[in-house]
Amino acid sequence: MCGRIEASFALCDRADAVRRRAAAAAYRARSTGSLADLDTLTELAPQVPEPYRRTLIDYVWDI
């Protein structure tokens, strides 16, 4: 049973890491206009759940 719980935490940690990386890329893309960070956000966006994904994209484009 412990193995399943640890595996669940590992999945959550990875999902959280993706959301954090996407949020950081969105912030940097908006604040500096970095194309590299926009590319990073574009790469990570499919892994970020809605509606948070839309929020990040709207933030970058200041909608």
Results as ranks from 00 to 15, higher is better:
R53G: 01
P51H: 07
S31Q: 09
T32Q: 04
A7F: 04
R53V: 04
A29H: 04
V18W: 01
F9E: 14
D37C: 09
A29S: 11
Y27H: 15
Y59H: 09
L56Y: 00
D39C: 06
L56P: 01
V48E: 01
L44W: 01
L56D: 01
S34P: 02
I57P: 01
A25S: 15
D37K: 06
A22W: 01
T40A: 14
V18C: 08
D62F: 09
A15P: 03
E50G: 05
E43K: 07
L38R: 10
P49I: 05
P49K: 02
R54L: 04
D16H: 02
A25R: 09
V18H: 04
G33C: 07
A25W: 05
I5T: 12
Y27F: 13
R30D: 02
D58W: 02
C2K: 11
Y27L: 15
T32R: 11
A23W: 00
I5N: 07
Y52T: 05
S31N: 06
R21C: 13
D39A: 11
I57V: 15
A26C: 05
P46S: 04
Y52D: 03
R20Q: 13
V60C: 03
S34G: 11
D37W: 00
I5C: 10
A25K: 10
R14S: 12
A17K: 03
T42H: 00
A24M: 06
Y59A: 13
F9N: 13
A25D: 08
L11T: 13
R14G: 06
E50D: 10
D62M: 12
A45P: 01
A23Y: 02
R19Y: 03
G33M: 08
V48C: 04
E6T: 12
T40V: 15
R54Q: 03
R53E: 00
D37T: 10
S8F: 05
L35Q: 12
D16T: 06
P49Q: 02
L38A: 13
R19W: 01
R14Q: 14
D39E: 08
C2I: 15
P51G: 12
R53L: 01
R30H: 09
I5A: 13
D13S: 13
S34N: 08
P51M: 11
I63V: 12
G33A: 10
A26L: 04
A45C: 05
R21V: 13
Q47S: 14
A26N: 03
D37P: 00
V18S: 04
F9Q: 14
A24S: 08
A7E: 10
A10E: 13
A29P: 02
W61R: 12
R14A: 15
D58G: 14
D58F: 02
L41R: 02
P51F: 09
A29T: 08
